[in-house]
Amino acid sequence: MQALINVNLMELLNSFISLFTAFVLGGIIGFERQFRQRTAGLRTNVLVAVGAAIFVDMAMRTGGDDGAIRVAAYVVSGVGFLGAGVIMREEGSVRGINTAATLWASAAIGTSAGADLILEAIMATFFVLAANTLLRPFVNAINRIPIDAQASELTHVIHIIAPASQRQTVMSDLERMLKAFHYPLAELDITPFGEEEIEIEATLMATSIDEKDMDLLIKQLNQNARVRQAFWSPRTND
């Protein structure tokens, strides 16, 4: 019978408005993500927004503002675990961080809608969409700017392709050359490269490295009869 006692048409209408707002706004954000074929698309963003709105709306009806504040804190931490699930690491790069951040923002919008802050939720939706759309041309323009090794924090990586049978000799040659150039080695990875070759990936410690010296080092490595190919690449520090 408690369920019948809890029925209040005005509060029910208020909850409907909150959940409907979360549904629509989460759908707007999710549509943009779905259009760009992201991991978390339309349904995921809607569910996150509506779910957050349900929790906060329920907390407000049962525990008042204090209850809503406590539940909102749990929503923030809970969505953090959900966002971690869409972040993937592959081939030394990290993907899905923007998707995870969008899910986090969808939860915030749902939380605002659940707390009856409808205009605030609409305003937040505008800014989330602006971040994912209006800022995209600026990001693309910045990414097209060549990396300045002197102005950026970079990790320099040397790649060497060599016969597997010459592994120890090539590693000794590399260590000797790095010592001559005073470049400390931070990490060394060796992976198969075809059936009879290996790739040695030497990551240098972050230090003041001259690109001309790096080119000279690579030139000397390529002159080594035991090295099939050598090159270096900068890697940004995340």
Rank of each mutant, 00 (worst) to 15 (best):
M1S: 13
L4T: 10
L4I: 12
N6C: 11
N6V: 15
L9N: 15
E11M: 10
L12D: 15
L25G: 00
I28M: 10
G30Q: 03
F31G: 07
F35G: 07
R43F: 01
N45E: 05
V50M: 14
G51M: 01
A52Y: 02
A52M: 02
A53F: 03
V56L: 09
R61T: 12
G64I: 02
G64A: 07
D65V: 07
D65R: 09
A68G: 06
Y74F: 10
V75P: 02
G80L: 04
G80E: 07
L82A: 08
A84C: 08
V86F: 10
I87G: 06
I87P: 04
I87Q: 08
G92D: 08
R95C: 08
N98E: 07
T99L: 11
A100H: 06
W104V: 01
W104T: 01
A107Y: 05
A108T: 00
I109R: 00
T111K: 01
S112G: 13
A113I: 01
D116G: 14
L117H: 09
I118W: 03
E120I: 12
A121P: 00
T125P: 03
F126I: 12
V128F: 06
T133H: 04
L135R: 06
V139F: 09
I142C: 05
N143D: 14
N143K: 15
R144Q: 15
P146E: 04
D148I: 00
D148S: 13
V157N: 10
I158T: 02
I161Q: 09
A162I: 00
A164E: 10
A164K: 06
Q166N: 15
Q166K: 14
R167F: 10
R167H: 14
Q168F: 15
V170S: 02
M171A: 14
S172Y: 13
R176V: 09
L188P: 02
D189L: 10
I198V: 03
I198K: 05
E199I: 08
E199A: 11
A202D: 00
T203C: 11
T203Y: 15
T207K: 05
I209V: 09
D210E: 14
K212L: 09
K212D: 15
K212A: 12
M214V: 05
M214T: 05
L216F: 12
Q223E: 15
A225Y: 07
R226C: 10
R226Y: 12
R228F: 10
A230I: 02
A230W: 03
W232E: 01
T236C: 10
N237T: 15
